[in-house]
């Protein structure tokens, strides 16, 4: 039996890549891509959204999505259109995330053909607080649930997925909590942050960060769409980078500012339309977040190809080289030294 897959959010990078990856699968008959806006020109995404994906422009917030699912006998739904609301206003993003998911999952519940639903969520649902455990597992409850913003949307979305799983036990539901995406084609508030000339940091804080490479993200979504893996899974690259380490690897000088000023700067940057800094981003910049991906690795028998550091490295390469000024300075300094530096040996 060949699958008919519905992918939401295909007008953005990850959605488009997932759609084209699925379209290339022999077991997939049709891929229907939906989004509220038409996909950008093929040139921008390197043509990767083209292929056999049929695009249907549907506002997820309207009940039209049910008709699409019914008309095409969709049996797999991959919902990747969750967005952090970078360009639009917060309320529009919330409407898109929460109401859109309600409509989509409502349609899935009614449908007689849908067998599998894969939903993209985020590790932001764990929040970011000083009194949390250092590493989150899927069962862990955050000490403070995120009170607002993108993270709350994702929490609500996960709630609706659990509702669907309860009401339609015959439908396999997978929820994927992704760490921040990183890679050549990724454009998020965080990637824009790292391309600032002098990124501000919060004075006295050095958060632990984790990234997932876009290739790995697409691969996880592809596998989840084609096989039954019910449950909730964290998805992140192996290892951890500290924010200070990221900035050093990017060869950038940072500007430590006290947290109230950091918030103000964020607001100003948002008003100027440069970077989007939401309160949850401020929390992330203070306390960081690390998740355990053991369950995903065990379930799929597969490990993300890129670790956190490798994903960041790949991102830096795509944005024009890493190292930069600080590395050059250190190299110049070593030139004056008479001996050759011994490489640091680390057995681990």
């Amino acid at each position: 039996m060949t699958h008919t897959v519905l992918v939401t959010g295909v007008s953005r990078h990850i959605g488009a890549r997932v759609a084209s990856a699925l379209a290339a699968e022999p077991g997939v008959g049709r891929v229907i891509g939906v989004d509220t806006v038409p996909p950008p020109s093929a040139a921008r995404d390197g043509g990767c959204h083209a292929g056999r994906t049929e695009f249907v422009r549907v506002d997820l917030r309207s009940p039209d999505i049910a008709q699409v699912i019914a008309a095409a006998d969709v049996d797999v739904v991959v919902h990747v259109s969750l967005m952090s609301g970078s360009s639009r206003s917060r309320s529009a993003a919330k409407e898109h995330n929460v109401i859109g998911t309600m409509q989509l999952l409502g349609a899935c519940q009614r449908s007689t053909t849908v067998r599998r639903v894969v939903v993209r969520s985020t590790t932001a649902v764990y929040g970011s607080a000083p009194n949390d455990p250092a590493v989150f597992t899927e069962d862990g409850e955050p000490v403070e649930a995120p009170p607002s913003g993108y993270a709350k949307d994702a929490g609500d979305v996960e709630g609706y997925v659990r509702g669907l799983a309860r009401r339609r036990p015959d439908v396999v539901t997978s929820t994927l909590r992704f760490a921040d995406f990183m890679g050549p084609g990724v454009d998020t508030p965080l990637t824009r942050y790292f391309t600032q000339p002098v990124p501000p940091t919060v004075l006295g804080f050095d958060p632990r960060l984790q990234f997932v490479h876009e290739d790995d993200g697409v691969e996880v979504l592809r596998r989840m769409a084609l096989e039954d893996h019910p449950g909730t899974f964290n998805v992140a690259g192996d290892g951890v980078l500290l924010l200070s380490q990221c900035l050093r690897r990017a060869g950038r000088f940072s500007l430590p500012v006290p947290s109230p000023l950091f918030r103000l700067l964020g607001e100003a940057a948002r008003a100027a339309g440069r970077v989007d800094f939401s309160p949850e981003q401020l929390a992330l910049m203070c306390h960081g977040r690390v998740v355990d991906c053991g369950r995903l690795v065990r379930e799929l028998g597969w490990q993300p190809k890129f670790g956190t550091a490798a994903a960041f490295e790949d991102f830096l390469r795509s944005r024009g080289g890493s190292g930069g000024l600080t590395a050059a300075l250190a190299d110049r300094l070593s030139d004056f030294a008479p001996g050759r530096p011994a490489p640091y040996k680390d057995e681990q």
């Binding site: 290892g239 980078l241 200070s244 380490q245 050093r248 250190a330 530096p341 640091y344």
Partner: peptide, 20 residues
Amino acid sequence: LAELLAFLRRRVTGEYEVDE
């Protein structure tokens, strides 16, 4: 001295590992 410089270079370029 060489070791110190290598150490400094690793520190300023972020080429070290931290655990989770």
